[in-house]
Amino acid sequence: MFDTKVAIVVRNDLATWQRLNVVAFLSTGIAAAAPEVMGEPYVDGAGRQYGNLFGQPMMIFEADLAGLQKAHRVGLERELTLSPYVFAMFSTGHDAANRAVFLAEDPANLNLVGLALRGPKKAVDKAIKGLALHG
């Protein structure tokens, strides 16, 4: 039904609150980069309007640091839309600080704790090959 796929990969050694936080932030990255993934607003039986959600499923995977770095590398090679979250971002309190700590990372060795990927199904599947669904 969809030509594209959205996958979020979260590091498997994080506390539960950290995993949830990372997934929430990364999903907003995909929504901002690809607003066409957003569905229409929800309306209840009384006519009250609610916010809209993604119009296609997102799959959540888990990986160790090496698995995240591989998915990142393949995602770059396949020119996917990527939204990264690095460990240092847990110590910041706002977007500008997040961008500053990300910029300070070694781009060849990002300390990723999460990564969102969007693009053609086959390309996303190549990037997440071998990763397990989050359990």
Rank of each mutant, 00 (worst) to 15 (best):
V22P: 02
V10Y: 02
F61H: 13
I60F: 00
L26G: 11
R48Q: 13
M89P: 02
T81G: 03
T92C: 15
N12R: 06
Q18F: 07
P41C: 02
L53T: 14
L14Y: 12
D3I: 03
A63G: 08
A15N: 07
F90Y: 14
W17Q: 13
Q18S: 12
N52C: 12
V6S: 07
Q69G: 10
V22K: 02
A33K: 11
F90R: 10
V23Y: 03
D13W: 11
R78L: 13
R11V: 13
G55H: 06
P57A: 12
P84R: 09
F87H: 14
R78C: 08
T92Y: 08
Q69L: 09
M89D: 02
V86C: 06
H72D: 15
V74K: 03
A31V: 10
S91M: 09
F54Q: 01
V22W: 04
M38R: 03
R11Q: 13
Q69P: 08
A7V: 01
M59P: 00
K5T: 06
A46P: 01
S91D: 15
G47Q: 13
Y42G: 05
T4Y: 06
G45A: 14
A33V: 01
R73P: 05
L68V: 08
T16Y: 05
V10C: 06
M58F: 10
V74F: 03
A71S: 14
A7N: 08
N52L: 12
F87M: 13
Q56F: 03
I60G: 00
A34L: 00
L53S: 15
V9H: 10
V86E: 06
V86I: 10
P41Y: 04
A24H: 14
A34E: 00
L65Y: 00
P57H: 05
G55S: 09
F2W: 08
R19V: 09
Q69K: 14
R78N: 14
R78D: 12
G75D: 04
G51N: 00
F61V: 07
F54I: 01
L20Q: 14
M58N: 07
F61K: 03
L26C: 14
V74N: 02
K70F: 03
V9M: 09
A63D: 07
Y50T: 12
M89I: 08
S83A: 15
N12T: 01
S27P: 02
L26R: 10
I30F: 02
Q49C: 01
M89L: 01
Y50N: 12
V10S: 02
V74L: 07
G55T: 06
V74E: 07
F25L: 04
T92F: 10
D64W: 07
V43Y: 05
